[in-house]
Every structure is written in structure tokens, then in C-alpha cells.
Simulated scan of single mutants.
Amino acid sequence: MHSAPMPSRRALLPLLACLACLALPGLGWAKDTDSNALGFKAYEKGDYKKAHGLFEKALKQNPDNAYARLNRARTTTLLNKGKEEKDGFEYCDYPSNWIFRALADLSKAVELERAAVLPKIDEDQKGLKALKERGEYLKWRKAVSLLGAEAGAAEKVLRETPDWLYEQPAAIPVHISLRPDKKVVTQDHTMEETIAGQWSLKGGQLEITPANGKATLWKPVAEQYYFNEGKDFFFDPQLQPVGEGASGSGWLGGPLRAGPLLGDCS
């Protein structure tokens, strides 16, 4: 009886590699990790185009890689900054608007690994510099502060955000302004201003007393605002009525928004 021939060393290599993948948990993501790491090396050398391609490769292999999301936001910013000031830039063309693409990546990164990623975002003075100078980012960061329940975040957002928007399907958008004299002023498509009530702060919440009606408490929260036909989202600061006031009609029923995309592309 003849024994079966032993496989060659070359034939054994693929089998050993496969067994290693089974034996070591998480090794299946090695390519993803390598693409992100290689991309970051290229990023540090200033080769942003190469780095961007590697970050995209990492995200195709693992869309939940929070660090690749952060890094792609950096290269998206660096490769596109200034384009919004040139003729032909379509602000409402989401696939080409680098601002919202970068915010979408940052939002997903924060959703996945907030505690680890957010300090890196706050400390970044290179890749995200141009994005951080924009009002869209500042509104986004307010929402993230609410998401993480940062100390004093709710009251800070309320004090620093006088303008809100009521925007619902089949409803006329209404702009709500919280004036320094404590008046609530509304403005619809006619551009006519109406004094709609009074406002005050109460323990990290907003109290609105309509001209005709009972006082209502509103809570600032962070919500996911989907755009680009629901393919992407960014975090959006919103005001939502709580308690009995939640059943109000029109803009008094909320929610009110103050996020990065505020009626510009409706």
C-alpha cells in the first residue's frame, strides 16, 4: 500500500495562512487596519491624495472603522478646501460638497467611538483646520456636545443659539428667533416678523410662553439629520418640547433645528 505524497512546502503556505486567520480573532480585519495605517503614513508625509485612497480602501473593507472615518474627513478637507468659494460650486450637490461629506464621516466616527475619537477631532489643527473655521462645523460641534452630555452643554447651546428652524414635510418653514429682550419672534415665507411669546432658561431647558397659551419646556438634544437621499447623516442640534407641551400644533409642536444644513437646500 502506497502512502499519499506529502504536499510541497509551497502548497502548505496558503493552508497555514488560513489556519492562522482562524486561530487569531480579529485578524480578518488586518487588511483594513493596514490600509488605514498606510494611509496615515502618507498623510503625515503630505501625500493627501494617496492617503485619501487608502482610507477609502479601509472603509470599503470595514465601514465601521472609526479612525478611517476621521482620517478620510481630514483628507477630504485638505483636498477640497477653498472649492466652495469658486464659481460653479454647487452647495446643495451633496456628493460634491466636501463640507457635508466630512461632517458625515466625523458623525459616524463619533457614533462608533466617541470617547476615543472626539478628543482627536478637538485637538486637530491640521487636517480639519479649514472645516473648523466654518459655521457648519460649529453647529455640528454643538450637537455633539449634547450627544455626550458634556457639562453645561445644554445651557451653553441655548445661550449661544438664538436662531432655530421649524421644517416639516408639507408645512411652511418657520424661523424662530430668541431675541436678547426675551421675546420669541417668528418669521415665515412672507418675511414678516411676529412676536410670538417670551422665552427664559430653566435648568438647562428652554421655557417658551406663547402669546396665547401655556408655557412649554423645550429640551436641547442631538439628533441624526439624514441627507443625500438618506445615505449619510450628521448630528444636528434640536429643540424638542417635553411634557404637556409636546402636543402643541405647528412650530409649537417642534422639533426646532439649528444644524449645519438649515433650510439652504430645502
Rank of each mutant, 00 (worst) to 15 (best):
V174N: 00
V174L: 04
V174M: 03
V174P: 00
S177G: 11
S177D: 10
L178H: 01
P180H: 07
P180N: 04
P180R: 03
D181R: 07
D181V: 10
K182S: 14
K183H: 12
K183Y: 07
V184P: 02
V184I: 10
V185S: 09
V185W: 06
V185T: 07
T186Q: 04
T186V: 09
Q187D: 11
D188P: 03
T190G: 03
M191Y: 14
M191I: 08
E192S: 11
E193H: 10
E193G: 05
E193I: 00
T194P: 03
I195D: 14
I195R: 06
I195A: 14
A196N: 03
A196E: 04
A196F: 05
Q198W: 07
Q198R: 13
Q198I: 03
S200P: 02
S200Y: 05
L201F: 15
K202N: 14
K202F: 07
G203L: 01
G204Y: 02
G204Q: 02
Q205L: 08
Q205I: 03
Q205T: 08
L206V: 02
L206S: 00
L206T: 00
E207A: 12
E207C: 07
E207V: 14
I208P: 00
I208N: 01
T209M: 10
P210Q: 08
N212Q: 15
G213I: 09
G213N: 13
K214F: 12
K214E: 13
K214C: 10
A215L: 07
L217G: 06
L217E: 10
V221D: 07
V221E: 12
A222G: 05
A222D: 02
A222L: 04
A222K: 01
E223S: 10
Q224D: 12
Q224G: 06
Y226E: 05
Y226I: 00
Y226N: 07
F227H: 04
N228I: 05
E229W: 15
G230I: 08
